[in-house]
């Protein structure tokens, strides 16, 4: 039975891919690839696709709960924000793929306990200056701060980020307003 029955996930997840074709709009460049709801189907997909570090500059992978589009405008993301991890060029070779896989395993494995409900998805951006991995949550208000902080601490723990290093949480509304420059951190851990 262990080999015959797939292991169900708490949520169904959808993988998205973004490739920057300047002739098309941002939304047209965002493509839904596949959804899965078991551990085996996650691995079938993950084992089949390029690692994030092999993507061309300007490309993204996103993994979001089914029904949530990987954009600020989605109902589930509008009031939310993201924990952001920036990586330098050296880290693309050494850490990027490990970090991205770890974030995926946290999400599909529901590693954030009761606060897993607040997780929307995660995005990895491959860029010339700095790659970014971000975990998006649905509610950045102070009433949800405990959950946001819990998620941030769990990310640090699972990614083995040094205690002295900090990661920041940015509200999407701030990121939208500051397009092109750095949004402020509402929380840090």
């Amino acid at each position: 039975p262990e080999l015959l029955i797939k292991h169900p996930l708490q949520n169904t997840w959808t993988l998205w891919y973004f490739e920057n074709d300047k002739k098309k709009s941002w939304e047209e460049n965002l493509r839904e690839i596949a959804s899965f709801s078991t551990v085996e189907d996650f691995w079938s997909l993950y084992n089949h696709i390029k690692c994030a570090s092999e993507l061309r500059i300007g490309c993204d992978y996103s993994l979001f709960k089914k029904g949530i589009r990987p954009m600020w405008e989605d109902e589930s993301n509008k009031q939310g924000g993201r924990w952001l991890i920036s990586l330098d060029r050296k880290q693309r070779e050494t850490e990027l793929d490990n970090f991205w896989l770890e974030i995926l395993l946290c999400m599909i494995g529901e590693a954030f306990d009761d606060h897993s409900e607040d997780v929307c998805g995660a995005v990895v951006n491959i860029r010339s200056k700095a790659d970014k991995i971000a975990l998006w949550t649905s509610d950045s208000s102070s009433s949800k701060s405990e959950g946001v902080i819990y998620i941030g601490k769990k990310i640090k723990e699972r990614l083995k980020i040094a205690p002295k290093a900090t990661i920041g949480y940015q509200i999407h509304k701030d990121t939208m307003e500051k397009a092109g420059s750095v949004a402020k951190n509402t929380y840090t851990v």
């Binding site: 080999l3 708490q10 691995w43 770890e102 395993l105 599909i108 494995g109 529901e110 590693a111």
Partner: peptide, 18 residues
């Protein structure tokens, strides 16, 4: 309610499942 939680090691062990 209940939630389906998987430890990291469990997920990794299933990576090469047939």
């Amino acid at each position: 309610g209940t939630r389906i939680v998987y430890e990291r090691s469990t997920l990794l062990n299933l990576r090469n499942s047939p």
